[in-house]
Design a protein around this nucleic acid. Structure first.
Lengths: 193, 193
DNA sequence: CCTATCTTGGATCGGTCGTTCCAAGATAGA
DNA sequence: TCTATCTTGGAACGACCGATCCAAGATAGG
């Protein structure tokens, strides 16, 4: 009995994710999602619930599919400060070139949206995971004697995490790759012994 | 001949500024501004033009009245790294306590809004002025021998500027003052000799 | 006081918002 | 094939969006 879905739910969610990422929740209408997915309102509401739930699902998907792989790569990179630099290299390339240039980061962007409790929790998780990944890399760096004396791994991890947010944010408003690179270099070279 | 305005234009602009700051442009309707100012639509449109122009004027006002005084205080503070720390002290207090706690910074928030060319120019100006103020303070610090060898004043100024954006952003989404403080300490202590 | 000119309140515009509803279509077990 | 159940398209909902318009109110020079 019963019917099955006639569309790819994951593909539809990705389409919504890209819209929210590029234009923001407040500026993206359900009609935009309908147009981008080719689905009807009924299918959309049936599959995802209302707009808020769709947005939360899109943020979750972004975190799982786009953020987390980057974080895990950083956390398991045992090259110390080189791992940190490599992370920011990838980030700058992603934010300033290619398909998503100038979009910033969906999670960073979400900070300025009207607070939705479901999303707020994801933001906190995102922050904790990234900071932990930086802390991993910095712990290796410290063991290798790469860090100069006054640096606390804990504080430096928090600082680098914040720096990543700012890179994402500024990349959305026309900051050049060279300018962002200077900021990253300022941080990494300050950490060095 | 002719009539004069029956309301305080600056006060109305401040009311709009606070709305845009707290809730964002996209989530703030003209009706909200009407309610907050007590004016009618006619007066509003007559005085400021459309919504985009009102928003641009509000950002300009924020920059002039709120950002620039902070930047000038930093730029003319000749205590080197202490000046940098003092700037972030004030910033953290502003972002985490008092009337505007959790609002972040209107200019930082504007980065995620739909790009409006009039505002984009203000964001670039904001960035340049803040970076210049940090560069001033860091130049003093370098002259005083406070900075460790590998640090470039130029890159470090860019880094601290980015850090300020991130503090603003994260303060909007429930980051604790202690956590933000840790990130700032990570940066300042990394710069120290 | 008169009147030309600007400001103001309030109705109203077409369009879009998120959401709901229902009949028609599709599917899988009986 | 029949039917119960889910999905789908599309119309429609009331509310709000930014913006405009006009008559009424207010003002200052004559």
């Amino acid at each position: 009995m019963a019917d099955v879905k006639h569309f790819d739910e994951a593909a539809a969610l990705t389409a919504a994710e890209l819209l929210f990422w590029r234009r923001g929740v407040a500026s993206t209408g359900i009609q935009d999602v309908v147009a981008a997915t080719g689905l009807s309102r009924s299918s959309l509401y049936n599959a995802f619930g209302g707009k808020d739930e769709l947005y939360a699902a899109a943020v979750q998907r972004y975190l799982d599919q786009r953020s987390r792989p980057m974080f895990e790569r950083l956390a398991s990179d045992d090259r110390g400060l080189v791992a940190v630099s490599a992370f920011f290299d990838r980030l700058l390339r992603l934010r300033c070139t290619g398909e998503f240039a100038g979009w910033g980061c969906l999670v960073a962007n979400a900070h300025t949206e009207s607070p939705r409790s479901a999303v707020q929790a994801l933001l906190a998780e995102h922050h904790a995971v990234l900071r932990h990944a930086f802390a991993n890399a910095l712990t290796v760096a410290e063991r290798n004697g790469e860090l100069h004396a006054g640096v606390s791994v804990r504080d430096a991890a928090e600082m680098l995490t914040l720096l990543a947010y700012a890179v994402n944010l500024r990349s959305r408003s026309g900051a050049t790759r060279a300018q962002l690179r200077a900021g990253v270099d300022g941080a990494v070279s300050a950490l060095k012994v």
